[in-house]
Computed example of a mutant assay.
Amino acid sequence: MTGIGLITPAGASAGETWQRVVEGKHTAAPDEALHGMPVALTCRAADFDGDAVLGRRTAWRLDRCTQLALAAGREAVADAGLAPEDWDSTRVGTVLGTAFGGVATWEREYLKLHERGPERVSPLTVPMSLTNMVAGQLAMDRGARGPSLVTSTACASGATAIGTAHQLLRSGGCDVVLAGGSESSLVPSVVAGFTKAGALSRQTEDPARASRPFDAERDGFVIGEAAAVLVLERAEHAAARGAHVYAYLSGYGASADAGHETRPDPEGRGAEQAVRGALSDAGLAPADITHVNAHGTSTPLNDASEARMIQRVFPTGPAVTSVKGVTGHSLGAAGAVEAAIAALSLEHQTLPVTAGLTRLDPDMDLDVVAGVSRCGSVDAVLSESFGFGGQNAALILTRA
Protein backbone atom coordinates (compact mmCIF):
# COMPACT_ATOMS: atom_id res chain seq x y z
CA MET A 1 0.00 0.00 0.00
CA THR A 2 1.87 3.05 -1.27
CA GLY A 3 -0.75 5.81 -1.43
CA ILE A 4 -3.74 6.88 0.67
CA GLY A 5 -6.53 9.29 -0.18
CA LEU A 6 -9.31 10.07 2.29
CA ILE A 7 -12.31 12.39 2.20
CA THR A 8 -14.35 11.83 5.36
CA PRO A 9 -16.41 13.73 7.94
CA ALA A 10 -13.18 13.91 9.93
CA GLY A 11 -11.31 15.82 7.22
CA ALA A 12 -10.77 16.46 3.52
CA SER A 13 -7.46 14.59 3.37
CA ALA A 14 -5.77 11.54 4.83
CA GLY A 15 -3.75 13.63 7.26
CA GLU A 16 -6.74 15.58 8.58
CA THR A 17 -8.81 12.43 8.94
CA TRP A 18 -6.09 10.56 10.82
CA GLN A 19 -5.57 13.45 13.24
CA ARG A 20 -9.25 13.70 14.18
CA VAL A 21 -9.64 9.94 14.46
CA VAL A 22 -6.68 9.77 16.84
CA GLU A 23 -8.11 12.66 18.86
CA GLY A 24 -11.47 10.89 19.02
CA LYS A 25 -13.56 13.93 18.06
CA HIS A 26 -17.02 12.99 16.84
CA THR A 27 -18.47 14.49 13.64
CA ALA A 28 -22.20 13.83 14.08
CA ALA A 29 -24.42 16.90 13.66
CA PRO A 30 -28.02 17.83 12.78
CA ASP A 31 -28.44 17.85 9.00
CA GLU A 32 -30.45 20.69 7.47
CA ALA A 33 -31.12 18.62 4.35
CA LEU A 34 -33.11 16.18 6.52
CA HIS A 35 -35.03 18.77 8.52
CA GLY A 36 -38.36 17.45 9.77
CA MET A 37 -37.42 13.77 9.52
CA PRO A 38 -37.59 11.52 12.63
CA VAL A 39 -33.79 11.14 12.52
CA ALA A 40 -31.84 14.04 11.03
CA LEU A 41 -28.38 13.37 12.46
CA THR A 42 -25.58 12.59 10.00
CA CYS A 43 -21.82 12.67 9.58
CA ARG A 44 -21.22 14.75 6.45
CA ALA A 45 -17.87 15.42 4.85
CA ALA A 46 -18.51 19.09 5.48
CA ASP A 47 -15.02 20.26 4.53
CA PHE A 48 -15.28 18.85 1.00
CA ASP A 49 -16.34 21.23 -1.78
CA GLY A 50 -16.54 19.44 -5.12
CA ASP A 51 -16.52 22.66 -7.15
CA ALA A 52 -13.37 23.90 -5.42
CA VAL A 53 -11.49 20.60 -5.57
CA LEU A 54 -12.50 19.29 -9.00
CA GLY A 55 -13.55 22.46 -10.77
CA ARG A 56 -17.17 23.42 -11.32
CA ARG A 57 -17.25 22.15 -14.91
CA THR A 58 -16.26 18.64 -13.77
CA ALA A 59 -18.20 18.57 -10.52
CA TRP A 60 -21.61 19.46 -11.98
CA ARG A 61 -21.51 16.35 -14.20
CA LEU A 62 -20.87 13.99 -11.28
CA ASP A 63 -22.93 12.70 -8.39
CA ARG A 64 -21.36 13.61 -5.04
CA CYS A 65 -20.46 9.95 -4.49
CA THR A 66 -18.24 10.11 -7.58
CA GLN A 67 -16.88 13.54 -6.68
CA LEU A 68 -15.64 12.13 -3.38
CA ALA A 69 -14.04 9.16 -5.15
CA LEU A 70 -12.20 11.37 -7.66
CA ALA A 71 -10.83 13.63 -4.94
CA ALA A 72 -9.65 10.68 -2.84
CA GLY A 73 -8.21 8.98 -5.91
CA ARG A 74 -6.21 12.03 -6.92
CA GLU A 75 -4.81 12.37 -3.39
CA ALA A 76 -3.86 8.69 -3.27
CA VAL A 77 -2.07 8.72 -6.63
CA ALA A 78 -0.16 11.89 -5.72
CA ASP A 79 0.69 10.46 -2.29
CA ALA A 80 2.12 7.36 -3.95
CA GLY A 81 4.41 9.50 -6.10
CA LEU A 82 2.87 8.16 -9.28
CA ALA A 83 2.27 10.17 -12.45
CA PRO A 84 -0.47 8.82 -14.76
CA GLU A 85 1.38 10.14 -17.81
CA ASP A 86 4.35 7.90 -16.93
CA TRP A 87 2.77 4.59 -15.93
CA ASP A 88 1.74 1.71 -18.19
CA SER A 89 -1.96 2.53 -18.09
CA THR A 90 -2.97 -0.93 -19.34
CA ARG A 91 -1.51 -2.40 -16.14
CA VAL A 92 -3.41 -0.08 -13.78
CA GLY A 93 -6.78 -1.27 -12.48
CA THR A 94 -9.59 0.48 -10.63
CA VAL A 95 -11.79 -1.34 -8.12
CA LEU A 96 -14.15 0.67 -5.93
CA GLY A 97 -16.97 -0.36 -3.65
CA THR A 98 -20.28 1.41 -3.09
CA ALA A 99 -23.66 0.39 -1.73
CA PHE A 100 -25.90 3.03 -3.30
CA GLY A 101 -23.81 4.76 -5.97
CA GLY A 102 -25.46 7.87 -7.41
CA VAL A 103 -28.65 7.63 -5.36
CA ALA A 104 -28.69 11.37 -4.62
CA THR A 105 -28.91 12.14 -8.34
CA TRP A 106 -31.57 9.49 -8.83
CA GLU A 107 -33.73 10.90 -6.04
CA ARG A 108 -33.34 14.48 -7.22
CA GLU A 109 -34.24 13.65 -10.83
CA TYR A 110 -37.18 11.47 -9.80
CA LEU A 111 -38.61 14.43 -7.89
CA LYS A 112 -38.23 16.57 -11.01
CA LEU A 113 -40.07 13.93 -13.04
CA HIS A 114 -42.85 13.69 -10.48
CA GLU A 115 -43.28 17.41 -9.89
CA ARG A 116 -42.34 19.05 -13.22
CA GLY A 117 -42.58 16.36 -15.91
CA PRO A 118 -40.14 14.32 -18.02
CA GLU A 119 -38.78 17.30 -19.95
CA ARG A 120 -37.15 18.60 -16.78
CA VAL A 121 -35.10 15.44 -16.14
CA SER A 122 -31.38 15.87 -16.77
CA PRO A 123 -29.84 14.02 -19.75
CA LEU A 124 -27.01 13.11 -17.36
CA THR A 125 -29.32 11.25 -14.99
CA VAL A 126 -28.24 7.76 -16.03
CA PRO A 127 -24.45 8.27 -16.22
CA MET A 128 -24.52 10.17 -12.93
CA SER A 129 -26.57 7.48 -11.19
CA LEU A 130 -25.07 4.24 -12.49
CA THR A 131 -23.25 2.37 -9.73
CA ASN A 132 -20.30 1.44 -11.95
CA MET A 133 -19.50 5.07 -12.70
CA VAL A 134 -17.76 5.61 -9.37
CA ALA A 135 -14.95 3.40 -10.69
CA GLY A 136 -15.45 4.32 -14.34
CA GLN A 137 -15.02 8.03 -13.73
CA LEU A 138 -11.92 7.52 -11.57
CA ALA A 139 -10.39 5.34 -14.28
CA MET A 140 -11.10 8.07 -16.86
CA ASP A 141 -9.79 10.79 -14.58
CA ARG A 142 -6.48 9.00 -13.92
CA GLY A 143 -6.16 7.30 -17.31
CA ALA A 144 -6.20 3.79 -15.84
CA ARG A 145 -6.93 1.35 -18.66
CA GLY A 146 -6.73 -1.94 -16.77
CA PRO A 147 -9.75 -3.75 -15.28
CA SER A 148 -12.33 -1.30 -13.90
CA LEU A 149 -15.18 -2.56 -11.75
CA VAL A 150 -17.38 -1.88 -8.76
CA THR A 151 -18.07 -4.24 -5.89
CA SER A 152 -21.38 -3.85 -4.08
CA THR A 153 -21.65 -5.93 -0.92
CA ALA A 154 -23.56 -3.40 1.19
CA CYS A 155 -21.43 -2.14 4.08
CA ALA A 156 -18.62 -4.54 3.19
CA SER A 157 -18.25 -3.05 -0.31
CA GLY A 158 -15.05 -1.07 0.28
CA ALA A 159 -13.29 -4.00 1.92
CA THR A 160 -14.47 -6.34 -0.83
CA ALA A 161 -13.02 -3.94 -3.41
CA ILE A 162 -9.63 -3.98 -1.70
CA GLY A 163 -9.73 -7.78 -1.48
CA THR A 164 -10.60 -7.97 -5.18
CA ALA A 165 -7.67 -5.68 -5.98
CA HIS A 166 -5.45 -7.95 -3.88
CA GLN A 167 -6.45 -10.86 -6.10
CA LEU A 168 -5.88 -8.89 -9.32
CA LEU A 169 -2.35 -8.06 -8.24
CA ARG A 170 -1.59 -11.62 -7.16
CA SER A 171 -2.81 -12.97 -10.47
CA GLY A 172 -0.34 -10.77 -12.32
CA GLY A 173 -3.11 -9.01 -14.19
CA CYS A 174 -2.12 -5.59 -12.86
CA ASP A 175 0.94 -3.83 -11.48
CA VAL A 176 -1.09 -1.13 -9.71
CA VAL A 177 -4.71 -0.99 -8.58
CA LEU A 178 -6.60 2.03 -7.26
CA ALA A 179 -8.88 0.40 -4.70
CA GLY A 180 -11.34 1.58 -2.10
CA GLY A 181 -14.89 2.81 -1.75
CA SER A 182 -17.15 5.82 -1.90
CA GLU A 183 -20.60 6.63 -0.55
CA SER A 184 -22.81 9.70 -0.37
CA SER A 185 -26.39 8.63 0.30
CA LEU A 186 -27.53 11.20 2.87
CA VAL A 187 -30.89 11.63 1.15
CA PRO A 188 -34.40 11.38 2.63
CA SER A 189 -35.34 8.06 1.03
CA VAL A 190 -32.25 6.23 2.29
CA VAL A 191 -32.32 7.80 5.75
CA ALA A 192 -36.05 7.10 6.06
CA GLY A 193 -35.47 3.47 5.14
CA PHE A 194 -32.74 2.99 7.74
CA THR A 195 -34.89 4.81 10.30
CA LYS A 196 -37.87 2.52 9.72
CA ALA A 197 -35.56 -0.49 9.96
CA GLY A 198 -34.52 0.68 13.43
CA ALA A 199 -30.85 0.94 12.43
CA LEU A 200 -30.17 4.61 13.26
CA SER A 201 -29.38 6.13 16.64
CA ARG A 202 -32.17 8.16 18.22
CA GLN A 203 -29.69 10.02 20.45
CA THR A 204 -30.27 13.20 18.46
CA GLU A 205 -30.15 15.66 21.37
CA ASP A 206 -26.55 14.72 22.20
CA PRO A 207 -24.66 14.06 18.94
CA ALA A 208 -21.46 13.19 20.81
CA ARG A 209 -23.23 10.16 22.28
CA ALA A 210 -25.04 9.01 19.15
CA SER A 211 -22.34 6.80 17.63
CA ARG A 212 -20.92 4.74 20.51
CA PRO A 213 -19.56 1.38 19.34
CA PHE A 214 -19.55 -1.42 21.93
CA ASP A 215 -21.14 0.84 24.55
CA ALA A 216 -23.70 -0.64 26.91
CA GLU A 217 -26.24 2.01 25.82
CA ARG A 218 -25.65 1.97 22.06
CA ASP A 219 -28.85 2.24 20.05
CA GLY A 220 -27.88 2.48 16.38
CA PHE A 221 -25.46 4.05 13.93
CA VAL A 222 -25.11 7.57 12.55
CA ILE A 223 -25.12 7.53 8.76
CA GLY A 224 -22.16 9.22 7.09
CA GLU A 225 -20.48 9.83 3.75
CA ALA A 226 -16.87 9.31 2.75
CA ALA A 227 -14.42 8.06 0.16
CA ALA A 228 -11.14 6.23 0.55
CA VAL A 229 -8.81 5.21 -2.26
CA LEU A 230 -5.64 3.22 -1.72
CA VAL A 231 -2.83 2.68 -4.20
CA LEU A 232 -1.93 -0.99 -4.10
CA GLU A 233 1.10 -2.28 -6.00
CA ARG A 234 2.87 -5.55 -6.48
CA ALA A 235 5.79 -5.50 -4.05
CA GLU A 236 8.42 -5.73 -6.78
CA HIS A 237 6.82 -2.85 -8.68
CA ALA A 238 6.87 -0.62 -5.60
CA ALA A 239 10.46 -1.64 -4.77
CA ALA A 240 11.67 -0.93 -8.30
CA ARG A 241 10.62 2.71 -8.04
CA GLY A 242 11.63 3.13 -4.39
CA ALA A 243 8.11 3.84 -3.20
CA HIS A 244 7.25 4.50 0.42
CA VAL A 245 5.22 1.56 1.75
CA TYR A 246 2.59 2.22 4.42
CA ALA A 247 1.74 -1.43 4.93
CA TYR A 248 1.43 -4.76 3.18
CA LEU A 249 -1.97 -6.19 2.34
CA SER A 250 -1.23 -9.74 3.42
CA GLY A 251 -4.58 -11.50 3.62
CA TYR A 252 -8.19 -11.38 2.44
CA GLY A 253 -11.18 -13.49 3.38
CA ALA A 254 -14.85 -13.32 2.45
CA SER A 255 -18.02 -15.23 3.23
CA ALA A 256 -21.81 -15.07 3.39
CA ASP A 257 -23.99 -15.73 6.42
CA ALA A 258 -26.75 -17.06 4.12
CA GLY A 259 -29.11 -16.20 6.94
CA HIS A 260 -31.15 -12.99 7.24
CA GLU A 261 -31.50 -9.85 5.13
CA THR A 262 -30.42 -7.43 7.84
CA ARG A 263 -29.54 -9.32 11.04
CA PRO A 264 -26.04 -10.78 11.41
CA ASP A 265 -25.57 -14.34 12.59
CA PRO A 266 -25.88 -13.99 16.40
CA GLU A 267 -22.62 -15.86 16.99
CA GLY A 268 -20.79 -14.29 14.04
CA ARG A 269 -20.12 -17.63 12.34
CA GLY A 270 -20.01 -16.15 8.83
CA ALA A 271 -17.77 -13.34 10.03
CA GLU A 272 -15.50 -15.90 11.66
CA GLN A 273 -15.21 -17.79 8.38
CA ALA A 274 -14.06 -14.60 6.62
CA VAL A 275 -11.57 -13.77 9.39
CA ARG A 276 -10.08 -17.26 9.44
CA GLY A 277 -9.87 -17.16 5.66
CA ALA A 278 -7.89 -13.91 5.84
CA LEU A 279 -5.58 -15.39 8.49
CA SER A 280 -4.96 -18.44 6.31
CA ASP A 281 -4.35 -16.27 3.25
CA ALA A 282 -1.79 -14.25 5.20
CA GLY A 283 -0.16 -17.30 6.73
CA LEU A 284 -0.76 -15.94 10.23
CA ALA A 285 -2.17 -17.34 13.46
CA PRO A 286 -4.72 -15.49 15.62
CA ALA A 287 -1.97 -14.71 18.15
CA ASP A 288 -0.09 -12.75 15.45
CA ILE A 289 -2.84 -10.10 15.25
CA THR A 290 -1.99 -7.16 17.50
CA HIS A 291 -4.95 -4.94 16.64
CA VAL A 292 -8.50 -5.34 15.33
CA ASN A 293 -10.10 -2.44 13.47
CA ALA A 294 -13.66 -3.58 14.05
CA HIS A 295 -16.77 -3.00 11.97
CA GLY A 296 -18.30 -1.71 15.22
CA THR A 297 -21.40 0.06 13.93
CA SER A 298 -22.90 0.99 17.33
CA THR A 299 -25.98 -1.16 16.68
CA PRO A 300 -27.08 -3.61 19.38
CA LEU A 301 -27.03 -6.75 17.23
CA ASN A 302 -23.94 -6.13 15.10
CA ASP A 303 -21.64 -5.16 17.95
CA ALA A 304 -22.76 -8.11 20.07
CA SER A 305 -22.26 -10.59 17.24
CA GLU A 306 -18.88 -9.16 16.31
CA ALA A 307 -17.71 -9.17 19.94
CA ARG A 308 -18.59 -12.86 20.36
CA MET A 309 -16.65 -13.68 17.23
CA ILE A 310 -13.57 -11.72 18.27
CA GLN A 311 -13.58 -13.33 21.72
CA ARG A 312 -13.78 -16.79 20.13
CA VAL A 313 -11.13 -16.34 17.45
CA PHE A 314 -8.67 -14.25 19.49
CA PRO A 315 -8.42 -15.60 23.02
CA THR A 316 -5.22 -13.56 23.54
CA GLY A 317 -7.31 -10.38 23.32
CA PRO A 318 -5.83 -7.93 20.77
CA ALA A 319 -6.74 -4.26 21.21
CA VAL A 320 -9.98 -3.37 19.41
CA THR A 321 -11.03 -0.05 17.85
CA SER A 322 -14.04 1.17 15.91
CA VAL A 323 -13.49 4.51 14.17
CA LYS A 324 -17.24 4.92 13.56
CA GLY A 325 -17.47 6.81 16.84
CA VAL A 326 -15.73 9.62 14.92
CA THR A 327 -16.73 9.13 11.28
CA GLY A 328 -20.17 7.58 11.61
CA HIS A 329 -21.04 4.74 9.26
CA SER A 330 -20.25 5.52 5.63
CA LEU A 331 -21.85 2.28 4.40
CA GLY A 332 -20.10 1.07 1.23
CA ALA A 333 -17.07 3.29 1.88
CA ALA A 334 -16.60 2.21 5.51
CA GLY A 335 -14.40 -0.82 4.86
CA ALA A 336 -12.03 1.22 2.70
CA VAL A 337 -11.87 4.09 5.20
CA GLU A 338 -11.05 1.63 7.96
CA ALA A 339 -8.42 -0.19 5.90
CA ALA A 340 -6.75 3.17 5.35
CA ILE A 341 -6.88 3.89 9.09
CA ALA A 342 -5.45 0.42 9.75
CA ALA A 343 -2.53 1.21 7.45
CA LEU A 344 -1.95 4.52 9.22
CA SER A 345 -2.06 2.70 12.57
CA LEU A 346 0.84 0.57 11.34
CA GLU A 347 2.65 3.61 9.94
CA HIS A 348 2.35 5.63 13.15
CA GLN A 349 2.33 2.72 15.61
CA THR A 350 -0.83 4.13 17.16
CA LEU A 351 -4.18 2.57 18.01
CA PRO A 352 -7.06 5.04 17.58
CA VAL A 353 -9.54 5.55 20.40
CA THR A 354 -13.14 4.34 20.09
CA ALA A 355 -14.94 7.67 20.41
CA GLY A 356 -18.32 7.71 22.13
CA LEU A 357 -17.60 4.67 24.28
CA THR A 358 -18.07 5.46 27.97
CA ARG A 359 -19.16 2.12 29.44
CA LEU A 360 -18.27 -1.12 27.71
CA ASP A 361 -21.13 -3.58 27.33
CA PRO A 362 -20.61 -5.96 30.28
CA ASP A 363 -21.26 -8.95 28.01
CA MET A 364 -18.17 -8.10 25.94
CA ASP A 365 -14.82 -9.38 27.12
CA LEU A 366 -12.81 -7.15 24.79
CA ASP A 367 -9.83 -4.83 25.16
CA VAL A 368 -11.49 -1.87 23.45
CA VAL A 369 -9.32 1.23 23.11
CA ALA A 370 -11.29 3.82 25.10
CA GLY A 371 -10.62 7.26 26.55
CA VAL A 372 -7.48 8.08 24.57
CA SER A 373 -5.55 6.56 21.68
CA ARG A 374 -2.64 4.26 22.50
CA CYS A 375 0.92 4.18 21.28
CA GLY A 376 2.57 0.77 21.09
CA SER A 377 3.92 -1.99 18.91
CA VAL A 378 1.54 -2.76 16.04
CA ASP A 379 2.65 -5.51 13.66
CA ALA A 380 -0.53 -6.94 12.11
CA VAL A 381 -4.01 -5.40 11.91
CA LEU A 382 -7.28 -7.13 11.07
CA SER A 383 -9.88 -4.85 9.48
CA GLU A 384 -13.40 -6.29 9.49
CA SER A 385 -16.44 -5.29 7.44
CA PHE A 386 -19.94 -6.77 7.40
CA GLY A 387 -23.08 -5.86 5.48
CA PHE A 388 -26.78 -6.48 4.94
CA GLY A 389 -27.39 -9.72 3.11
CA GLY A 390 -24.87 -11.46 5.35
CA GLN A 391 -21.85 -10.10 3.45
CA ASN A 392 -18.53 -10.49 5.29
CA ALA A 393 -15.03 -9.31 4.34
CA ALA A 394 -11.79 -9.33 6.31
CA LEU A 395 -8.44 -7.74 5.45
CA ILE A 396 -5.09 -8.27 7.17
CA LEU A 397 -2.46 -5.56 6.92
CA THR A 398 1.08 -6.04 8.17
CA ARG A 399 3.89 -3.70 9.05
CA ALA A 400 6.19 -2.51 6.27
Rank of each mutant, 00 (worst) to 15 (best):
G3I: 03
G11E: 01
G11I: 06
W18E: 08
M37N: 07
L41D: 01
A52F: 08
R61C: 00
T66S: 13
T66N: 07
Q67C: 14
L70W: 03
A72D: 07
R74G: 10
G81W: 11
L82K: 02
A83D: 11
P84R: 10
T90A: 14
G97W: 02
A99H: 01
V103Y: 05
A104W: 10
E115Y: 14
P118L: 15
V121I: 13
V121Y: 05
P127V: 09
T131A: 06
L138E: 04
R142T: 15
R145D: 10
A159H: 00
A161W: 03
G163Y: 02
T164Q: 09
C174D: 09
V176Q: 02
S182H: 11
E183N: 07
K196T: 13
L200P: 04
R202L: 13
R212E: 08
P213W: 11
F214E: 10
G220I: 01
A227E: 12
H237Y: 05
A239M: 11
V245R: 14
A247L: 03
D257I: 07
E261A: 15
T262K: 07
G277K: 01
A278H: 02
G296M: 07
S305G: 12
E306T: 01
E306K: 02
A307Q: 06
F314T: 10
P318D: 09
V320E: 02
K324I: 07
K324N: 09
V326L: 02
L351N: 05
L351C: 06
A355D: 05
G356V: 13
D367W: 06
S373E: 06
S383T: 15
